[in-house]
Amino acid sequence: MTSNRFPRHARVRARPDFDRIFQHGRRVALPVLALHWQSGDGEPRLGLAVSRKVDSHAVGRNRIKRALREYFRHIRGELAPGDYVVVARPGAARRSGAELVEALQGLLRRAGALPAPAAVGTMPPAPPSSPSTPDIRTG
């Protein structure tokens, strides 16, 4: 069972790591968030970049980081191995925590790091047809 903790080794913290991911990683973006990621061998790691241009108040920047970090902590076991850096854009300050999580989830799916959800429908799946069932037309 995977722990839901968010230990230090699950964080991108050093500037050279951020620089490497920005230079050599792949990127997908929305008006609210940008995701830079680089596949790797170890467990998924998260780095966050929320500048004063996003929100001039530390409280607002910390709210954004807290929402994204909490979501990442819960889905870390489902993600592909690699380093993920989320860059908040100025529109993020006007979004709720749920909207930020939804944006990050969409970016991770677009990046191929998070599997698509199972299709939900009202009909049960059709059973496979068996070859031993007699055909009514030839019967």
Rank of each mutant, 00 (worst) to 15 (best):
L35E: 04
K65F: 05
P7F: 08
T2K: 11
T138Q: 12
T2D: 10
R95Y: 03
D83I: 05
V101R: 14
A113T: 03
R20K: 07
I75V: 15
A80K: 09
R94M: 02
V12E: 09
R11F: 10
L35P: 04
P134Q: 02
A88I: 06
A49C: 07
S51R: 07
R20L: 10
V85A: 03
G82V: 10
R63E: 09
A58W: 02
S39R: 15
R27S: 13
P7K: 09
T138L: 14
G77Y: 06
T2M: 09
T133P: 00
S132K: 04
R137Q: 09
G25A: 07
H24E: 12
R73C: 00
D135K: 04
R73G: 00
G121P: 13
N4M: 11
D83W: 13
H74F: 09
T122Y: 10
A98L: 09
I64N: 11
L46I: 02
F22V: 00
N62M: 00
A49P: 01
G25H: 15
E102G: 13
T133A: 13
P31W: 10
P128S: 15
P117C: 11
P31L: 09
G139C: 14
I21A: 04
P125H: 08
A92H: 09
P115A: 11
S96M: 00
G97H: 07
G97D: 09
P7M: 13
A49K: 05
S130W: 15
P125I: 08
A80W: 04
E102L: 09
T122C: 12
V86D: 08
A34I: 07
R8A: 15
A92T: 08
D55M: 07
L30P: 00
E78G: 01
R110L: 15
G106H: 12
A29H: 12
L108I: 03
D41R: 12
A111L: 10
A98K: 13
D41W: 02
A80V: 14
A111D: 12
F72R: 05
R63H: 00
M123T: 14
L35W: 08
Q105L: 05
Q105N: 13
E78I: 08
H36V: 04
Y71A: 13
H36D: 05
L104P: 07
D55G: 15
R15D: 14
P44G: 06
R52V: 00
D83K: 10
L79P: 06
R69C: 01
Y71F: 11
D17R: 11
H57N: 06
V12L: 12
R89K: 15
P90I: 02
L48E: 10
P125G: 10
I136P: 13
P90V: 05
D41I: 01
P125V: 12
S51E: 04
G97Y: 03
L68I: 08
Y84S: 01
G112Y: 04
R137M: 15
H57C: 06
D135P: 01
P115W: 03
I64A: 01
M1H: 09
V85W: 06
G77W: 03
S39I: 03
S129L: 13
R63A: 10
V120T: 13
L104G: 06
